[in-house]
Nucleic acid binder design. Structure first.
Length: 343
DNA sequence: AATCGCCACAACCGCAAATAG
DNA sequence: GCTATTTGCGGTTGTGGCGAT
């Protein structure tokens, strides 16, 4: 979403305690400007984060400490990962939410670089939308079973397919150029961030941060390449090895595909106690049964779903592969609706 | 070309827990 | 131990973008 510079109307004027303080001090709220972002980044680069109220004052920002903290954590922090939620991340979110419910910050701890806000937004916009389209409550047993027995196995399939396809050349490299043009640079000489020359605020929305001091080190994935990087990025190492999903995804046949994703490995851990993989017919605890035909990639491809191309492939019509991974979510909806129709 | 409605996401709000003084 | 302040979290809202009409 593009963010326009603040307006006069953004000056606070209502009545909570913090707002009254804010009004007394003529504090701003609403979208952040490039100048504010740079001021905040520079201050944190030199003094570190914490003590947000005093930080806001000392940095010369007419913002509440709360607002500064949120801006930093959810947006400016160098390690914040932007761009589409990858398939692996979707899978993790579904799994972790089924375990912990709306504990967004806890879930976010297992998705490096993702913020609780981003995950919460994903859940509300995507997952709840699916529940709505399936005409069931997002917290209902039926929807949870649908996620567990249909959607998640389907995601695993797609991750595997993506891993195979990733070995083929893609045309994703051009995105790097775009990102580079919208990049904030950290100047090591004077410990300051510099906005790109003539930066419109819209550029900030897609900018990556490149820092090279102790606190702000490294370069970060771009919105465009974050999806294609899914199979080899920083998943897994912080993820608990214990998953209920392993019960369902154990012994999955991966002989023909060799996914490199650690996240997928996470869901494929061998469990000697269970011989039934997701390709087999399953009956959910609440009594819904899901036949293997719907979960079999061959029969699935043979069906006349809306986004199937002439080659019987999913979304691989010559466009950017990461886009297709994302857009294919609609075919998931079609697929889930077909399956539920058979129940 | 203009308008409308929906969607996604950044930012805000209120509350509770943690920490400082 | 008490109070004030700060931090963290989950829920909600406001707004720009974009497709449909």
């Amino acid at each position: 979403m593009d963010v326009k510079p603040g307006r006069v109307s953004d000056i606070i004027r209502n009545s909570s305690e913090e707002d009254e303080d804010a009004m007394m001090m003529d504090l701003r709220r609403g979208p952040w400007t490039v100048e504010e972002d740079v001021a905040l980044m520079n201050y944190i680069a030199n003094h570190g984060e914490g003590r947000w109220n005093s930080l806001a004052r000392c940095a010369g920002l007419k913002r509440t400490g709360k607002s500064c903290r949120l801006r930093w954590l959810n947006y400016l922090r160098p390690d914040v990962r932007r761009g589409n939620i990858t398939l692996e991340e979707q899978l993790l979110i579904l799994e972790l939410h089924s375990r912990w419910g709306n504990r967004w910050s806890k879930i976010a701890q297992h998705l490096p670089g993702r913020t609780d806000n981003e995950i919460k937004n994903y859940w509300r916009t995507r997952v709840q939308k699916h529940a709505k389209q399936l005409k069931c409550d997002v917290n209902s047993k039926q929807f949870k079973d649908t996620m567990r027995y249909l959607w998640m196995p389907r995601l695993v399939e797609r991750i595997q397919a993506a891993a195979s396809a990733a070995t083929a050349p893609t045309g994703a490299s051009s995105s790097i150029t775009t990102a580079a043009a919208n990049t904030y640079h950290f100047n090591n000489n004077n410990n300051s961030f510099q906005a790109p020359a003539g930066a419109a605020h819209v550029a900030l929305q897609q900018a990556t941060l490149i820092g090279n001091n102790n606190d702000l080190a490294g370069s970060y994935t771009t919105p465009e390449n974050s999806s294609t990087a899914a199979s080899s990025d920083s998943f897994g190492t912080q993820v608990s090895p214990v998953s209920e999903l392993t019960d369902y995804y154990s012994n999955m046949s991966v002989n023909n595909n060799k996914p490199s994703s650690q996240a997928l490995d996470y869901f494929q851990a061998t469990n000697p106690h269970h011989q039934v993989g997701y390709h087999d017919s399953m009956t959910s605890p609440s009594g819904y049964s899901f036949n293997q035909g719907g979960l079999n990639s061959h029969s699935f491809q043979a069906a006349s779903a809306p986004e199937q191309n002439n080659n019987g492939q999913w979304g691989m019509d010559g466009g950017d592969f990461s886009d297709n991974l994302w857009n294919v979510e609609e075919s998931d909806m079609w697929f889930l609706q077909q399956q539920l129709g058979n129940i």
